[in-house]
């Protein structure tokens, strides 16, 4: 069997310098080429899991490990993880005034290439890549001239995340509520963009509250997340069941 893209084993995470435990024994294996969905209550730790995967500071792993294509992910800096092929589409993308979106995209792509020992992209090559990807996501060129995410509408921010993902061609895509804030048409466009990236060598972890997204991005497996752990896993039918019955059926606590 080939190495899974991602293996999370008994992961316990707390907030640094505080007593607050958030993740309490997450186990999850994501084989190459598969799309897994995570659904769970507000505050159950889904975004925290995505941050820990991406390497955000301020969290302490007290137990367990994460293997990314067989390597110890927790040993790597956030930028090294990105260069190695991990991408997080943020639930709340950060606005960065003073940094033009194009400048940022170029810096990011070239930084990853440099870390991997590849040559920098030539300007025309870069421009074409961005233009094609933006067209596919129906992102207007003038949005790319603006400072990164500044004044972008909620939906525009999510599209910009997927644009970055398309440009970076990661091996692992973690999508944290990419569907929230998208109108019906945008949901379709973004889902098409995501589906376009589905590949035998690429895996996705899709965090969502809505089974509707999973009609577009059809998952291989669905995990129910509760109080910092995966409490149930199943095929895509599980999402429908969850929507019908509510979380209490699965985690035994009333809403």
């Amino acid at each position: 069997m080939t190495t899974p893209i991602l293996e999370i084993k008994n992961l316990h995470v707390k907030v640094e310098e505080e007593d607050k435990k958030i993740l309490k024994g997450v186990d999850l294996t994501l084989p190459a080429g598969e799309v897994h969905a995570i659904m769970g209550r507000n505050g159950s730790g889904k975004s925290t899991l995505s941050y820990v995967l991406a390497g955000k500071e301020g969290y302490e792993v007290t137990e367990g490990e994460i293997l990314f294509m067989g390597k110890d992910l927790l040993e790597m800096e956030a930028d090294e993880r990105a260069a190695a092929g991990l991408f997080l589409a943020f639930q709340y993308p950060i606005e960065i005034p003073g940094v033009a979106t194009m400048t940022f995209l170029k810096a990011a792509l070239n930084a990853q290439r440099k870390t991997r020992g590849e040559e920098e992209l030539k300007v025309p090559e870069f421009m074409k890549l961005v233009k094609d990807a933006a067209n596919q996501l129906e992102i207007k060129q003038d949005m790319l001239k603006r400072p990164l995410n500044v004044g972008f509408s909620g939906g525009e921010k999510k599209r910009a995340e997927i644009l970055q993902m398309a440009l970076m061609q990661p091996s692992l895509c973690v999508l944290d509520e990419t569907d929230s804030g998208l109108d019906i048409d945008a949901l379709k466009i973004v889902s098409d963009g995501v589906n376009h990236l589905r590949d035998a060598n690429r895996s996705m972890l899709v965090i969502t509250h809505y089974q509707r997204l999973l009609n577009y991005i059809v998952p291989d497996r669905v995990h129910v997340f509760s109080d910092g752990r995966v409490v149930e896993s199943g095929d895509r039918e599980l999402a429908l069941e969850l929507e019908k019955k509510g979380y209490a059926e699965f985690d035994g606590t009333a809403a």
Binding site: A54, K56, A78, D79, G98, A107, A111, P147, Q164
Partner: peptide, 23 residues
């Protein structure tokens, strides 16, 4: 963190933000 999560090294991310502050 956002910049680093896109592959930009800390030192470069810092100077991008410093330049942005002065923009």
């Amino acid at each position: 963190f956002y910049l680093m999560s896109r592959g930009i090294k800390r030192a470069e991310a810092e100077s991008m933000l410093i330049r942005a502050f002065l923009a």
